[in-house]
């Protein structure tokens, strides 16, 4: 069905930054994890976010989501400063993004279906029938079998937890999707399907996807742009060609390593 898609052209969209981060400092105790970080995420793109382990990729995601306090800097989402907004408009923004946490973060005492329905029940007034149908739709869209719907998270495998968690993140048809290592722990076929799914959703719903990932296949196949984090800053940002051309030692090592060549060769 993908061949019928209109080709995405970045120039058509006016490169509106849905997330704009400026001069962000985040630290714990003595250690400054993010130091004057600037980042733009444009509407409708899939941004792959890479960086060495322990360098603050998750910290940046969590700071944008408001889970970690920042020391300095400015974060704008949909053009609004997160610090300057009222609680009500903050809640409105939170409805417009969906988050897939690294460990899934499903509510352990609710079934998958109930997990998906939590945001819908909280924010929407829907008939029971539509609630059930939408939950099942999301569950099927992320590639879970219908009988997974009434299972508890403890009965699911790691890959199924990822999918169920994505279904919950998609429950309110968000405009921005934060994915924290979405394909880690999935088998290559499952990871490929996951990438296709995200690409399809992105094209049909106009999603903006912010994806922290180490999966080189994802970076090559679905990401429009890649940003690399190092020493608390963005050390390189741009499409994969820019990454390959970068002189930064870590970026070079990352994109010219054995695994990267294997991914590029496909």
């Amino acid at each position: 069905m993908l061949q019928t898609l209109p080709e995405r052209t970045m120039t058509e969209r006016d490169r509106e930054a849905v997330i704009r981060v400026r001069g962000l400092d985040v630290g714990f105790g003595e250690r400054l994890v993010l130091n004057g970080l600037d980042l733009d995420v444009y509407r409708g793109e899939i941004l792959g976010f890479v960086g060495p382990s322990g360098q603050g990729k998750s910290v940046l995601t969590r700071t944008i989501l408001g889970l970690i306090p920042k020391r300095a800097g400015r974060i704008e989402v949909f053009g609004e400063d997160l610090d300057a907004m009222s609680i009500a408009s903050r809640r409105a923004i939170e409805r417009r993004w969906g988050v897939l946490f690294q460990q899934g973060a499903l509510f352990s005492s609710l079934t998958v279906r109930q997990n998906v329905q939590v945001p819908m029940r909280e924010h929407l007034k829907l008939s029971e029938r539509l609630l059930d149908e939408l939950a099942m739709l999301k569950i099927e869209m992320v590639g879970l079998k219908p009988d997974a719907a009434d299972k508890l998270p403890s009965e699911l495998s790691g890959g199924m937890i990822k999918r169920a968690s994505l279904a919950r993140a998609l429950a309110l048809d968000p405009e921005i999707l934060f994915l924290d290592e979405p394909t880690s722990g999935l088998d290559p076929i499952g990871a490929g399907e996951f990438d296709d799914l995200i690409a399809t959703l992105q094209r049909t719903l106009g999603l903006t996807v912010f994806m922290v990932t180490h999966d080189l296949d994802s970076l090559y196949t679905v990401c429009d742009r890649i940003a690399a984090l190092g020493e608390g800053k963005i050390i390189a940002a741009g499409p994969i060609e820019d990454m390959l051309a970068s002189d930064h030692p870590w970026v070079r090592a990352y994109f010219h390593g054995k695994r990267a060549r294997a991914a590029a060769g496909q």
Binding site: M1, T4, L5, P6, R113, D132, E133, M136, L137, E140, M141, P146, D150, T200, R203, T204, L205, G206
Partner: peptide, 19 residues
């Protein structure tokens, strides 16, 4: 519209077994 058409195909109706 094309993108709406794709979306309609993507979510194409299927019966769900009632809970």
């Amino acid at each position: 519209r094309p993108e709406h058409h794709i979306l309609l195909n993507e979510v194409a109706y299927r019966g769900f077994q009632p809970r």
